[in-house]
């Protein structure tokens, strides 16, 4: 493509930014227990808030709810899609990309945000627009553009239930595609690791091996964390360590809501935890809602792999 051709192409493509893909449309079925059960079974999600009506009747909510992540399922077109899809501005735009050789397609990520819970009997409405199209990018898959659609879900009263952003890369496939492993740009981000040096590397190494250690002065036996080279009590440089039983109690806690950081779960709960051995540790609390955490709460920890590259102590309600 000459610069002039590229400009002409981009003018046509960028004209789609802000264009409505579909007006507010009701889902074919109201939220119902059968579809919730199918979804929860397929996902292996046994949360009684979704499927156990007796349990739910006695819960804070008084009724079952649909899994929030299921939001997009209600408005799916269903089997008819196999017989072809009616054209809309998004299919037109994709066709335009294809015409210019950007035939490759890769869904890169989906982000959902939830504002309100829905229960059986509610009806979900969907409206969608093309929210953004990136500048031209050189990715390891080939030259391309990222576009993002924004789907907004509301209930029968017009109240916003959630949003979903879907990001797609349309690219010109390379003749000899690079191996996916060499593809930095499309790699799933992971948590920011601790650098490892003399004084802390052994501690993280033990975590990798499934153990939570606490440094101990060999001379006076005082425990210390985070690890450091000298004992502050007796100035000895000699140390060993003990393995923690990973039982503890919440000293304080918070939840990082904003900004969202790539590679991290949404809204991670972090806590200062007093371990039964007496030293404090900062780690995540998982396995319960933020609202259920309190100062003084008893916890039991496990070492878990939390993403492709990261292993960390994670604590659960005891």
């Amino acid at each position: 493509m000459t610069p002039e051709e590229q400009k002409a192409f981009e003018d046509r493509i960028y004209a789609y930014v802000g264009v409505k893909v579909c007006e507010r449309t009701a889902a074919k079925d109201a939220v119902n227990p059968a579809m919730i059960r199918h979804w929860a079974e397929a996902m292996g999600d046994t949360n009684p808030a979704y499927t156990d009506e007796t349990w739910a009747a006695n819960s804070r909510r008084g009724k079952t709810i649909a899994p929030p992540a299921m939001m997009y399922a209600w408005n799916q077109e269903g089997f008819t899609v196999t017989r072809g899809r009616a054209s809309d501005p998004q299919t037109d735009m994709v066709e335009l990309f294809n015409e210019y050789g950007f035939t490759g397609v890769l869904g890169t990520n989906v982000t959902q945000e939830y504002f309100k819970e829905v229960s059986p009997g509610d009806t979900l409405y969907l409206e969608m627009e093309i929210d953004s199209i990136s500048e031209r990018k050189a990715t390891a898959r080939g030259i391309g553009y990222f576009f993002e659609t924004l789907a907004t879900f509301s209930d029968q009263n017009g109240e916003k239930v959630g949003t979903q952003r879907f990001r797609v890369l349309k690219f010109i496939p390379q003749e000899q595609p690079t191996a996916a492993t060499g593809d930095d740009k499309l790699e799933v981000p992971t948590r920011i690791p601790s650098p490892r040096g003399h004084d802390n590397g052994w501690w993280w190494q033990a975590v990798d091996e499934g153990k939570l250690l606490i440094q101990r002065c060999k001379r006076c036996q005082v425990l210390r964390h985070p690890p450091r080279p000298m004992c502050g009590e007796c100035q000895s440089l000699e140390w060993d360590s003990i393995e923690s039983g990973m039982e503890g109690e919440v000293i304080s806690y918070t939840c990082l809501r904003h900004p969202a950081i790539p590679g991290y779960p949404k809204d991670p709960v972090c806590a200062v935890i007093k371990l039964a051995e007496g030293t404090n540790l900062v780690a995540n609390i998982v396995g319960c809602d933020y609202d259920d955490v309190f100062i003084g709460m008893k916890l039991k920890g496990r070492i878990e792999q939390v993403d492709e590259k990261t292993t960390l102590p994670q604590f659960y309600p005891a």
Binding site: R191, P193, P195, Y253, P265, P268, C270, N284
Partner: peptide
Amino acid sequence: AIHWGWYTPYGLLTPASWTAMITQR
């Protein structure tokens, strides 16, 4: 960097998050 490494893997990454921990207590 090693100091921050005790917090970054858990998502405790910003001045607001560190201050929040002290404030909650």
